[in-house]
Design a binder for these strands. Sequence first.
DNA 1: ACGGTTGTTCAACCGTGATGAATTCTTCGC
DNA 2: GCGAAGAATTCATCACGGTTGAACAACCGT
Lengths: 215, 215
Amino acid sequence: MNSSPRRGRRAGSPDVRAQILAVARERFRREGYEAVTMRSLAADAGVDAALISYYFGSKRGLFAAVLELALNPADVLASLLEGELESLPQRAIRVLVAGWDRPEIGLPLLTAVRAAAADPELATLIRGGLQREMVDRLADRLSGADARHRAGAFVGQLGGLVFTRYLLAVEPLASMTVDEIVRALGPALRTTLFGPVGGHARRPDADGGCPAVRR
Amino acid sequence: MNSSPRRGRRAGSPDVRAQILAVARERFRREGYEAVTMRSLAADAGVDAALISYYFGSKRGLFAAVLELALNPADVLASLLEGELESLPQRAIRVLVAGWDRPEIGLPLLTAVRAAAADPELATLIRGGLQREMVDRLADRLSGADARHRAGAFVGQLGGLVFTRYLLAVEPLASMTVDEIVRALGPALRTTLFGPVGGHARRPDADGGCPAVRR
DNA sequence: ACGGTTGTTCAACCGTGATGAATTCTTCGC
DNA sequence: GCGAAGAATTCATCACGGTTGAACAACCGT
């Protein structure tokens, strides 16, 4: 029995940090946040579990590091906003659904949202990204005093699609085709951006386009 | 068949099950799902921790039991749908925001949604409730071939409000007043129910009221 | 009085993320 | 070259999580 204490620093320059990151990225998106345990992940990466804490501080730190790699749809958003504003509603729906319907894109995003739902700090990460990359950019392209409000409502409706179709999978939204979703949700998004009538100029009146209701 | 189902020990201490349920209900909504540990909860209720597993099978079972008590907005929904359909969009927004803005109502709901985001079985619970109590009922009151699709989109948009404003707290939605939300989101909800123009009859055309876009 | 059923307690099990000391390698001043 | 500083790696261990099973106590019908 060789009592060879294989302890201590390994020779050469094996980039263990990147190794952990790669394995974690894969397993997190397949199995979600909680299902992946630090020990199993360490074993999977051929690494001691304590190294994860060493490099990333905590399990959450590792997850956040993975997120910052995977969560980079800034370019997608940019290209969306480059197009004509007129067709943004349906383009946004199509791009969003097309992305989230592909497992290799949708699963990591879903994992991220799930984790953010449970962990306030991760929620801050997502929230910041949404505000910076979506709300603010969209608001810049809109006009009118309530541009930011309308941008917020627009993002909120897209968020509703994510929440209802992908996170909770509520029917019928979960099973509808892209075209059906565009048909059912497109006009509403369009109304949010441009007002109830379809033209550009008209602003919604105080009652939100609905007749008064006694309360 | 044994005709005497009531055998065995008659609870010496007054209804421990209800006691656990009451304490759990309170602590879950204050501290969330994960933060509440079975031992601390048991100690809080003056009960052995194993009794929770005994009565509810697991911590999740206890949470589900709490949910079925707290999550009973069926009557709220019913009263919403009893009113005129015309004003449903803004009434729905007002009722939803008014409820979720009150901590004693919003916090338990938020806890439920948070837990459902992490736990597929709890998600099934929420999903079923949403479909049964909201989508199906609303679809029954709508007409047209795509009534169910429009009902789904409507619920999805309300879900977006919950997701964006309460779960992630994305600005500006998180800080907007009820009136501002009604103004920004009301027309869109109205469009979802009744079509783009504001009248009843017109159905959205195939491109969702948006000009064609090359893909 | 008895046997079966139900409620309650206690002690342990196993797995989780995290920490600190011990050990080995790399790097750099001299 | 050399030896000290520091970085990387392992191991043992901690505190805590939910859950389980064996024992015991109270109660029931017969």
